[in-house]
Design a protein around this nucleic acid. Structure first.
Length: 291
DNA sequence: TAGACGTGGAG
DNA sequence: TCTCCAAGTCT
């Protein structure tokens, strides 16, 4: 059982979304920025911020020339703000060591901060039309169902997951790159986690999950990710105070966002360690580089 | 490799 | 209201 490339590519041509980073004229830098922003973050929230970034920082060196604080502020509420810091660092490396050109080679991309197995191959494929197994959560789910007949993907295994996708990939670069975008899109629009729209699926007839009678997911339970009351929430509240003000703020102002002083201070400290906050000479707190 | 790491919309 | 989940990476 497989996923017919021609059928999938035709479906993608007819139903794929016209996202700005998929425009033919979009730069490799634009693709890279989109990929980082889209990590664990819905398209709808990324689009407006991506446009702002492209207008303000059209090339890596432009971003690298801005302060970390400006970058964190411009990241807004996309979440996981360390991504903004790493992208800023990556831009610096690209500007300084790669002639302001986003690398096209997977291994070179992997060496950049914030770029892992998925993003490196996504940039190689979507920005440069290279043939590379692009494996994200959507692709893992589609493969689990259409190929393996399982209700959902089990725990990730980079080696195995990439081998699965490699086997589906067309031989030539251009169609392989387009196939990568198409299978991701299938997972995002049709073969969704919650309520898959199988009636609209282009590979319904060849789907192993259908042939198996749509069995329930049998793998190990996925860990539920708590948020309320975690350090993640408190860090978010703390950082949001700085995003919402111009200059440095007093600790007293930060003390207002969370009742538990111990947790508050621990989070404040971790933000300093991460470089998302800095302390001024007079003991105030500021976004990095903004004092 | 399990767990940390933000945020907000949908069901 | 509350759980699930959205193009992952790093340690």
């Amino acid at each position: 059982m497989a996923v017919d490339a021609d059928v999938l590519l035709d479906w993608f041509s007819a139903h794929g979304r016209d996202l700005p980073w998929r425009e033919p004229g979009c730069s490799a830098w634009g693709v890279l920025v989109s990929e980082i922003m889209l990590q664990q973050t819905p398209v709808a929230r990324v689009e407006p911020i991506w446009h702002e970034w492209m207008a303000r920082w059209p090339v890596p060196s432009a971003l690298a020339a801005s302060s970390q604080g400006e970058v964190v502020r411009a990241w807004g509420k996309l979440g996981y703000p360390r991504r903004a810091l790493r992208l800023h660092q990556a831009a610096g490396v690209i500007a300084a060591e790669h002639g302001d050109v986003v690398p096209s080679d997977v291994d070179t991309l992997l060496a950049l901060p914030g770029i892992g197995a998925y993003t490196a191959r996504a940039v190689a494929a979507f920005a440069y039309g290279r043939r590379a197994p692009v494996v994200d959560t959507n692709v893992r789910r589609v493969v689990a169902r259409a190929v393996h007949g399982a209700g959902d993907a089990g725990p990730a295994s980079n080696t195995r997951d990439m081998a699965d996708v490699e086997a589906l990939l067309p031989a030539d670069d251009a169609p392989a790159a387009r196939f990568s975008a198409a299978i991701m899109e299938l997972g995002a629009l049709i073969c969704t986690a919650r309520a898959p729209r199988c009636a609209d699926c282009p590979v319904y007839d060849e789907c192993a999950w259908q042939h198996a009678g749509r069995p329930e997911y049998a793998g190990p339970a996925k860990p539920v990710q708590k948020f309320a009351g975690t350090d993640r929430q408190v860090r978010g509240l703390l950082l949001d105070v700085l995003r919402g003000t111009e200059g440095p703020v007093e600790k007293a102002k930060l003390d207002l966002v969370w009742h538990d002083g111990g947790q508050r201070d621990r989070c404040l400290d971790s933000l300093l360690v991460d470089g998302l906050l800095e302390q001024t000479r007079d003991g105030l707190f500021a976004l990095p580089g903004e004092h």
